[in-house]
Simulated assay, not measured.
Amino acid sequence: MPVLFKQELQNKEAKEGKEVKLTCELTKPDTPVKWMKGNTVLHASEKYEFKQQGTVAELIIRDVTAIDAGDYTCTAGELKTTAQVKVNDATVVWKKGEAMLQASAKYEMKQKGTLAELVIHNAEPEDAGRYTCDTGDQQTTAQVKIHAVSALIEEGLKSLEALEGGTATLRCRLSREAPVEWRKGHTVLRPSNKYRMRQEGMVAELLIHDLETKDAGDYTCVAGSQKTTAALSVNALPVHFKKELKNEEGTESGTATLQCELSKAVSSVEWRKDGKALMPNGKYRMRREGRFAELVIQDLDLADAGSYTCVCGDQKTTATLRVNGKHSTHLPH
């Protein structure tokens, strides 16, 4: 009686790394069979195991990879049965701690054949922790440690000279993006109307606005254990009178006020009458507030009339004061 296949091979699908079993059944027990992949005869090895028990013949393919996909045939004499084996990539899930990771600018997942890879870009201290590769029924875990690398100062601060009232920009370049701290002398600077800190990529900048002579000094940029220092010089603008003295007129026994405005606040001005320096007393009251200077002449008499000058450095402004006598009352003859 001729041998027939009672049960033919069935198509199989498996994940990479798994095992595939192809089974067929003949009508006659212990019938010799031959196994083939495509046109290649297979031999027993670590990859292939042949089993035959009674009427059942079995091929076991171990640790399957993409190259194991294809058509497999079992032949018995002139008879044959063929089935297709499909191998799917083993889909892995990556986790940090218990959190599942998604592909992003930070995390790149690669898979080639049986090799799965997680790439962590721009590693930072907070990326340290336990990472797990999970295939669903199996998982493997590893600990990642991040060693912080200090940023190096590639280009230090340069000393700078600037004009009063202007803005000075101090700049340094780092070997990588890193937080920096700015100091003037030993004082840590904070963002304000005076100071603005700017950082773009590896370049750190300190902008100092509305410069005054007191802003001159040593400025330091600190990045980790590294620092760079430069001196800022502020050149004072020459003072000039923004509003000059105006001629004034007063009445005997009254009060006269002379006022002028300078381009900036100064520590002192000098008042003169007809070229002679005046001192504060019961007659003269001198006031200075910010950029404004004022001379008040009290209890006017005719002798107070004359030329008054306000002097600041090599600048001066002059005005004339007229004092009118009190009107006499004439009785009719």
Rank of each mutant, 00 (worst) to 15 (best):
110 K>N: 13
291 R>G: 00
220 T>M: 14
63 D>G: 00
90 A>D: 10
60 I>F: 00
201 G>M: 10
77 G>I: 06
212 E>N: 15
238 P>E: 15
268 S>T: 08
236 A>G: 04
29 P>D: 14
49 E>F: 01
78 E>M: 10
199 Q>S: 10
153 I>G: 02
132 T>E: 06
139 Q>L: 07
222 V>H: 05
196 R>D: 01
20 V>W: 01
95 K>F: 06
5 F>K: 11
227 K>R: 12
8 E>C: 06
268 S>Y: 03
78 E>T: 09
145 K>L: 11
320 T>Y: 13
217 G>S: 14
274 D>I: 02
23 T>W: 07
49 E>K: 01
58 E>G: 00
100 M>Y: 12
305 A>K: 05
80 K>Y: 12
146 I>P: 00
144 V>L: 13
85 V>W: 01
168 A>E: 07
78 E>Y: 06
299 D>T: 04
56 V>L: 03
289 E>D: 06
135 T>R: 00
53 Q>C: 06
307 S>A: 15
253 S>H: 11
193 N>F: 09
185 G>N: 03
10 Q>M: 10
124 E>Q: 12
299 D>S: 05
90 A>T: 10
130 R>Y: 06
152 L>V: 04
314 D>R: 14
182 W>I: 08
282 G>T: 08
174 L>P: 04
81 T>C: 08
74 C>R: 05
101 L>C: 12
11 N>R: 07
103 A>L: 14
256 A>I: 02
283 K>F: 00
227 K>Q: 15
228 T>K: 11
233 S>D: 15
139 Q>C: 04
123 A>H: 00
212 E>Q: 15
71 D>I: 05
224 G>A: 10
276 K>M: 05
130 R>Q: 07
255 T>A: 11
116 A>I: 03
288 R>T: 04
197 M>S: 08
123 A>N: 01
39 N>C: 04
21 K>H: 11
314 D>A: 15
65 T>L: 00
292 F>W: 03
113 G>N: 09
254 G>R: 07
93 V>I: 14
29 P>Q: 14
162 A>E: 09
50 F>M: 11
27 T>E: 14
97 G>I: 09
185 G>I: 03
18 K>Y: 04
264 K>T: 05
330 H>F: 13
262 L>T: 04
97 G>M: 10
32 P>E: 08
2 P>F: 13
104 S>H: 03
317 T>M: 14
333 H>N: 08
262 L>W: 00
17 G>M: 07
123 A>M: 07
214 K>Q: 15
292 F>L: 05
282 G>P: 02
243 K>V: 15
263 S>K: 03
35 W>G: 14
135 T>A: 13
203 V>A: 06
252 E>P: 02
200 E>R: 11
115 L>V: 15
291 R>P: 01
